[in-house]
Each structure stands twice: as C-alpha cells, then as structure tokens.
Design a protein around this nucleic acid. Structure first.
Lengths: 167, 167
DNA sequence: ATAAACTTTCAATAATTACTGAAAGTTTAG
DNA sequence: CTAAACTTTCAGTAATTATTGAAAGTTTAT
C-alpha cells in the first residue's frame, strides 16, 4: 500500500465510522482530510479532493467549526479562507466528548429525571417505570461524570495514572 | 405527568436517543418498552403498544437478541414467544459496550494499524499520515482497553471505587 | 461605488434507511 | 399427516437524510 491508497482508505474508513456513530459522512471525511494534511486547505481544495459540492463543503465545514474541532486560518495575502483541524488526538477527543455530552447526554439526563419523578400511585407498573428510569438516570450521570473527568485531565494524567491503575 | 404520559415520553426519548447514536428507532423503542414492562411481552403486545408492523417487530427483536440484550422467554402452555430485556442497567451497559467494541472499534483499530504501517518514503505527507493514524490507533486502543476494563468490573467496583476516585 | 472573489443559503433531487404487509416458512397439537 | 398458530423473509413503498448547484449574500481591492 502506498500513500494515495492509504490516504483514501483512511478518509473512507473515517467517513463510514462517522455514519455508524450518527455523524454525517461528508463531515467526517472533511475532518479526516484535514487531519492528515500537512497544511491548511481551502474550500476549493476540499471540494476537489473529496469530490463534493461547494454547498456541502460549506455546510459541513461550518458544523465542524461549530463543534470546535476545525478552525479558520487566515493566510495573509490570500482572499480565500483556509481550514485546519485540531491535530492532537487527545485534544480532539476532549472536544468531541464534551460536545456530545452537552448536546446528547445532558438533555437525556434531564428527561429521565423528569420521568422518574412522576407521582407514585403505588401500582406495580408505575413503581417499575420509576425504578428503571431512576437506574438509567444514575447510570447516565455516572457515565457522564466519568467522561468529563477523564476528558478534562492533562494528557498524561489519563495515559499514565489511570491506565496504570486499570491495568 | 401520570403513568401513560411518562411511559410514552420514556419510549420516545429512548427511541430518538437511539437514532442519534446509530441505532434504529424501532429497535430502541422495543427495548425501552421491555425495560419498563413488569412482565414478558409477546410480539403481538409489542406491535400493538408501539403501533408497528409484524415484520418490523420481528426483525428488530431478532437484532436485540443478537446484541444479547433481549431474550426469549418460554411461557409454559403458551404457543407464542415472549420477550424480556436485561433489567439491570449495569449489565445492559456491559453488553452494549462489549458489542460496540467488537463490531465497531476493533475493526477500526485493525484498519488504522494497517494504514500506519505503510512504507515510509520519507516525504512530509507520508510522515504526517503515519504519525496521525498512529496517534488515532493509540487513542482507540487506550479507549477500548478502558472501556473493557470498566465494563468487566463487578457493579460495585465501578460505582464505589472508581467513582470515589474521580470525585 | 462597483466589480471580482469568495461564502452561504436553500429548493430541488438523489441516496439511504426504515417499515409494511402478505407470502413463505416453521413448529406444535391432535 | 394436516391444520392451526405462530414467526420470518422480502419486494415494494414510505420516510428520512444528504447532496447538489445556482442564486443571494458578503467582503475586499481599487
């Protein structure tokens, strides 16, 4: 396998992984492309490399920026905007974990809490609903707390201390 | 909010959460329904409660069984098959984490390893590709190892020891 | 001010994914 | 063996989601 094949494989693998996890293909592929690029890329560059339309590129770049993992890079003397992604995987993982927590886990925790505090009429089915939603609520909170804790450590805390601990 | 409303809210919330994480709506809703049900349900029961077709119910039940989180329950004297889901959330989380690792993380680790070991021709772009896919490979392995370790502990190890540690 | 260079928006369309319902398949009772 | 009771499969269709491309919008240079 040489460079071009490897590059294509990387971009397409990342793209389908994204799909699997509820992130759209173009978005994942743009990020992948930037991730292995040695220099910032323009919209033009991205469109050409990935063979996608201008509109698609624009929309997904904006989403990536919104997620905090892609930034505009102004190149002096150039009219075009250039883009780079966070290159440090740990930092990247932090951003993604933080955002998914905020957008997805937190709202679910809120709803589970609401549901688990319905009036208890002492019927079996109500008791079961309360019990089970409470358990899920606790699990979600625990998982989210762990995620935050892990994600907010310095790179070395996690790779060194925790990894040592759980091995 | 009383029982019926709470139940519907729970099922639909779980359904849309599923969608967000790449699990289909019907599958998530069936699991949610079983999760708060006080007794095993038949295909008929599920179809009626969720207003979905027989085919859809059958397909998704099979998938849930395949994931190891729903089991058939034979009720003596009954011709129909009845279904229950794992009721312990910790156990449920273990199953799901284990399966997602096996189906999704492991294959990606394999591909990243392949890519990161392409022939290094010493050009800048090849060096960058190798460096970045290696980093991702390491991250994926670390995350996966942690997931496994966490997920394979007794319920109390995680909720007591680790939670105490990170608080 | 205006024109060129560039980006965003969005209605139309394409691609993907989920769902239905009926036919085919399977199991059990008698 | 046969019929009833039940489950699975799958072709057709519906619903959802992603993508295009051109018009509208914005910014910058002169």
């Amino acid at each position: 396998m040489e460079y071009l094949e490897a590059k294509e494989k990387f971009i397409s693998t990342w793209g389908s992984l994204g799909t699997l996890w509820g992130i759209n293909k173009a978005m994942a592929q743009i990020q992948a492309l930037l991730f292995i690029s040695t220099k910032p890329l323009s919209m033009e560059d991205i469109m050409e490399e990935l063979k996608i339309s201008r509109g698609n590129t624009s929309t997904n770049l904006r989403q990536l920026i919104d997620w905090g993992i892609v930034t505009k890079k102004i190149i002096t003397g150039e009219r075009k905007e250039y883009f780079t992604t966070e290159k440090d995987v740990q930092e990247l993982a932090r951003h993604i974990a933080k955002e998914r927590s905020r957008r997805e886990i937190q709202p679910v925790i809120k709803i589970l809490k609401e549901i688990s505090s319905i009036e208890n009429d002492q019927t079996e089915k109500t008791k079961e609903l309360i019990k089970q939603t409470k358990s899920l609520h606790d699990l979600a909170e625990t998982a989210d707390a762990m995620l935050h804790k892990i994600v907010n450590q310095e790179q070395n805390w996690i790779t060194k201390s925790l990894l040592k601990l759980i091995k």
